[in-house]
Design a binder for these strands. Structure first.
Lengths: 237, 237
DNA sequence: AGAATAGTGTCTCTAAGACACTATATA
DNA sequence: TATATAGTGTCTTAGAGACACTATTCT
């Protein structure tokens, strides 16, 4: 079924009906063994058969864009965005981006903790995690560009929001949080300065009173604070 | 004419064709007499007849999204984005946002200098500038929300990019640049500290060697520098 | 005791904010 | 000379980066 808009959108405008296929694509990032990873699916049919692509699919008739992205994430990974973070990234609509016709894709960015439940066993045939540094060939469609934009968005948002916590489990140590920054930015940070910074920036993290039990001195466990923005920001060098 | 995508988008996906109307809407900002202003058009037909709305229209069949936004800007204002700035803002696709049917709008943000050529005389019947602080009723559709998002984007980008120069003519004084910050942020800034900051931040502005001729000591004229990002940023209090 | 990891204290340097002062034009 | 606007210098303070040191666990 196709919905048709009747009448001019506004006076002075033209009447071309602009019916276009709308999809959502997902840049799903997580951190595994200290490395930034992205979820990719292998294309089984043309175009770009055999290439890796971002997960995604068509927006349903009566479905919000963010809801569509959440549904696709669930279908492809078997996991909800609940413990992590999901936001709109950017919309890609260049006429030639899909050889089959005009498709506008509203890309979304998801940040997830490294969940114990693996991706396998979900609906998605070939969804798998790939270390960002080790992606072999070019991705299908313009997904390479979308992936780059998503990674850059994540890198930038770590600076001025507490979003690094989306990569962590509900309770985490300062060292784990620092590991997120190091993996996403591809740098190393001074553990002492980072600790001071993270614990003194208002609303970034709150102590739970609990401690870890591993080798070495036990680390205090923290939960995400209520700040939406970091004041002052945690800038990259 | 309607383009239809044949075949599944990718394996594992569903087959709903997701045909939706795609439009571009524009948040066009400028500064007039020291106040931040937005370009609005009055709706002559239902729905929302008589209400103010953002300019916009349908994306053409073989047209890029940014190009569509540029075209609408030209049609509504008679002016190109060339001297200013145009970027994608965000996409709005809530199912109920247009009572006539499913319409996904890719909103764009345009920042323009206060051009001597007025908006009148252009294609647009009722396009006019409105002081942001003095917009009477609610806007049509979800345009109030889009406008808020656009203004917030502009406010944020002044912090860490040299985008304030998009509101200025090609050559401008430091006092004019400061006026942009004050209008967009709705604050007052210390003229002396701002001068130091603007002239010492690498790549923000470059001197032309020219000077103004008005009352008082002549001010040096500057042009936009080649920096894409301000290091360090110029943060709001 | 020794290894391993967590967390604190201190110093230096950069940059922001407050504000007095100097500079150069017009009326 | 008065007025108006442009631009510089200085002081204080917040915060980032470098890095020595202390703390608390396990083996």
């Amino acid at each position: 079924m196709t919905i048709t808009v009747e009448g001019t959108y506004r006076q002075g405008g033209d009447n071309s009906v602009g019916q276009i296929s709308v999809t959502v694509d997902l840049v799903v990032l997580t951190i595994r063994q200290g490395e930034l990873c992205v979820l990719l699916v292998e294309r089984g049919i043309p175009p770009y058969q055999g290439r890796w692509a971002l997960p995604g699919g068509f927006v349903h008739e009566d479905e919000d864009l963010l809801a569509a992205a959440g549904r696709e994430l669930r279908e492809e990974t078997g996991l909800a965005a609940a413990p992590g973070h999901l936001e709109q990234l950017r919309t890609y609509g260049e006429p030639g981006r899909d050889p089959r016709g005009r498709v506008v894709s509203v890309a979304h960015l998801a940040l997830l903790p490294d969940l114990p439940a693996p991706v396998a066993g979900s609906d998605a045939a070939g969804a798998s995690w790939h270390r960002l540094a080790a992606i072999a060939g070019p991705l299908a469609f313009d997904h390479g560009r979308i992936l780059r934009d998503g990674v850059e968005r994540a890198r930038a948002k770590l600076e001025y929001t507490p979003l690094a916590t989306a990569f962590c489990p509900a309770e985490f140590t300062i060292a784990e949080l620092r590991g997120v920054y190091e993996a996403v930015w591809g740098t190393t940070l001074d553990a002492r300065n980072f600790h001071r910074k993270a614990t003194t920036t208002a609303g970034f993290v709150v102590s739970t009173g609990q401690r870890t039990q591993r080798v070495g001195r036990p680390a205090e466990l923290y939960r995400r604070g209520d700040a939406e923005v970091l004041h002052p920001p945690l800038l990259r060098a």
